[in-house]
Amino acid sequence: MNSLDKLITEFDKGLRTVFAPAHSVRPQPDRGRAETPLSESEKKQAAALMRVNHSGEVCAQALYNGQALTARNPATETALRQASEEETEHLAWCEKRIGELGSHKSLLNPVWYAGSFALGALAGALGDKWNLGFLAETEKQVGKHIESHLARLPVQDEKSRAILEQMKIDEARHATTALEHGGVELPLPVKLAMQLSSKIMTSTTYWI
């Protein structure tokens, strides 16, 4: 496949990630959990948190696809594609839950996808050890966000909690896999820049 074909393929993936319903091979983690009564304010809180997590998965999809596009080692590309496939499942889980809570996905998802894809492609171009290090750090930060969201969810919202707990397990595994494939620790300024961009995304997506 030549470069133009690869770009067309990635553009198609981006459109499907942002606009098409996602599908999951694994069962929904909240399957079998009863829907518990939530007040309107609790529903809004839970929906906003799930919207943030959904947008985080959109960003993750874009990052991994961008990284895989420019990865130099086939094993690295395979690891990135595998992580991307599981993030698609996370998209499906979050999207379904947002709908159940009567809310909507972020209107800014196309912006987040485009920016994250460009960042991922740059990371991939820097070399595989930095590429995988970027993946590991991304997953660590996502895991911290999920942990904070678990603390902020309405206590009785077991369905959203089950989804986030499974996502947290998956993200930790992705980080470990990246390090096992040769990922290196990123410099502190890069980590701080990632945290800042993540904060901008999460605080905006909570409302829009």
Rank of each mutant, 00 (worst) to 15 (best):
S106L: 02
E85H: 13
S198E: 03
L4E: 09
S84Y: 05
E147K: 10
H174N: 05
R161V: 09
L69E: 01
E171F: 06
Q141Y: 06
P189H: 06
S197Y: 07
R26Q: 10
G66H: 01
A114D: 04
I8Q: 06
Q195D: 07
T17Q: 04
A71E: 00
A193C: 10
S103T: 02
G120P: 06
A60P: 10
H90F: 09
S39L: 13
H149F: 05
L7E: 12
W130E: 02
N131V: 05
P37R: 14
Y113M: 00
E165I: 15
L49N: 01
P74A: 06
R51S: 00
Y64V: 07
K105M: 00
E85F: 12
T177Y: 07
S148T: 15
E77H: 14
S84R: 12
A125P: 12
W207P: 08
G102E: 00
T204A: 12
A79W: 00
N131P: 06
P37L: 10
M194D: 01
I8Y: 05
R173G: 07
T17I: 09
S3E: 14
T204P: 10
V52G: 05
L15M: 14
G182C: 07
T202A: 10
G124V: 02
L132S: 04
K199F: 15
L80R: 02
T78P: 07
T176E: 13
H104T: 11
G99L: 02
T138D: 06
G133F: 02
A46C: 10
H174T: 06
Q82S: 15
A162V: 10
L188H: 04
R173N: 10
Q166F: 11
L135I: 06
S3K: 09
G120H: 01
Y113E: 00
P37M: 08
E10P: 09
S198M: 08
K43V: 13
Q195W: 10
K13T: 15
T76G: 06
L4H: 10
I208C: 08
G102N: 03
Q61I: 04
G32Y: 03
R16V: 05
N109G: 04
H174G: 04
A118S: 09
K140V: 15
A178V: 07
V52F: 05
A71P: 05
H181K: 15
E185M: 07
K191V: 15
Q28L: 12
F11W: 10
Q67F: 01
R161A: 11
A34H: 07
H54P: 08
K199Q: 14
P110N: 02
T36I: 14
E35Q: 13
A20Q: 11
E89A: 11
E42Q: 15
A125Q: 08
Q67C: 01
E86P: 10
L69P: 04
G133D: 02
W130I: 13
K144C: 00
S103L: 00
A22Q: 03
L15G: 11
D5R: 14
I98W: 00
H90T: 12
I163A: 01
G32A: 01
P187F: 02
K43C: 15
M201W: 04
T17V: 15
E185C: 07
Y64G: 05
R81W: 05
